[in-house]
Amino acid sequence: MLRYIFQRFIGMIVVMFLVVTIVFIIVRVTPGDPAAVMLGPEATAADIAQLRTALGLDRSILVQYVYFIGQLLQGDLGRSIFLDQPVLTALAQRAEPTFFLTIFSILIASVIAIPIGVYAAYRRGSIFDQAATALAMLAASIPSFWLGLILMQVFAVRFGIFPVSGYGGPDTTLGERLYHLVLPAFALGIVSSALIMRFTRASMLDVLGDDYIRTARAKGVVERSVVLKHAFKNALIPIITVVGLTAAVLISGAVVTETVFGLPGVGNLVVSAVLRRDYPVIQGALLIIAGLYVLINFAIDMLYLVVDPRVRY
């Protein structure tokens, strides 16, 4: 087991090193002078030269890379040009909406998809199974921003049940802020549930046909116990994988949804940074999101140890 954990940890470090290197190269090979792009067409040559010196762009690529790695090891992601504050601070200030939106969305997707997927596999070929598969395909083809606009029109504009947009003011309580996330969370959760449901159904179908399931039924084990205790437990590996990957995708995929609902999250910050050519913020956001991807994958690998004893041995 320790060898398994060590291998996964080393793999995580290697992947993060590659991600850091790729992000560094992408930003440096962008067409044009990054300093000139950030300052705009009205900038003077002196202003551009000053910014290039401040960003270290006047040094060699190797020196820039070593300096970049050193900054990362110190937790320094650079300084935003337009916000005039450290990138890490800017991202931390906008992390709360994105964090809660991701958590609520994955909970909604799991609550919808996993029970439906399990029952659809158990009733394979039935009307329920066919209807669930059709609805999953429909949900997978719906853009989250379009569904968000529909939910906004119905539940916010017409019935006035939920806020149209925003995240509340500075003095707003946490409960009221979370209330603003109901519609965007459902918009993301419903779309994400399609993939989870299909993986759950496929994984359950593979397990329900195994010999030990037939043996359990032959011994007279209660059908509910056969499905939930024997089959579902052994089908968890693919389900955990797809839920974890969906959570990682939601972190980076909430950009459009946050923009539609006017949420001051990381996605909205990235959109603003792209429009302003604020390269330090874009670079920092890429590194944070990639790091979260790697950490979620590592957490999934650790959950395998809990779910499947075969991994431990």
Rank of each mutant, 00 (worst) to 15 (best):
T215L: 07
D211W: 01
E223H: 02
G166L: 02
G169M: 11
Y279V: 10
L228G: 12
R214C: 12
A139G: 13
G291C: 05
T172K: 02
T215K: 01
A136T: 10
Q283P: 03
G253F: 00
L101A: 11
Y122M: 13
Y119D: 03
I114N: 05
G209Q: 14
I116S: 10
L18C: 15
V274P: 08
R59N: 10
P143M: 08
F104G: 13
V243Q: 05
R123C: 07
F82M: 14
T172V: 07
V294P: 02
G284Y: 01
R217E: 15
G175E: 13
L228S: 13
S80V: 02
G291N: 06
F162C: 13
Q50C: 02
L305E: 06
D308S: 08
G32R: 03
I240D: 02
V311G: 13
S193K: 06
F82A: 14
Y304V: 04
V306C: 00
F82I: 14
A131D: 01
L303C: 11
I300K: 12
R177D: 10
G166T: 03
G253K: 01
Q50H: 10
T241K: 02
F145A: 01
A120F: 04
A218C: 09
I69W: 14
R276N: 15
M137L: 15
I106A: 04
P309G: 06
T246Q: 09
R28W: 06
L208R: 12
V227E: 08
L138N: 10
L181M: 12
K229C: 11
L287C: 06
L208P: 10
I289E: 07
T133S: 12
M137C: 14
A285K: 05
P31G: 05
M204Y: 00
T44F: 07
D171L: 11
F261K: 06
I190W: 13
R201A: 00
G209S: 15
F24L: 05
L205K: 00
R277W: 00
S192D: 08
S110W: 10
V182P: 01
T53L: 11
Y212W: 08
A134T: 12
T257L: 12
I112A: 14
I13C: 15
V27G: 12
W146D: 00
R214L: 15
A235W: 01
S110D: 12
G169T: 15
I150C: 07
L73E: 03
V307I: 13
L188M: 15
A120N: 02
V27E: 14
G75S: 11
V111T: 00
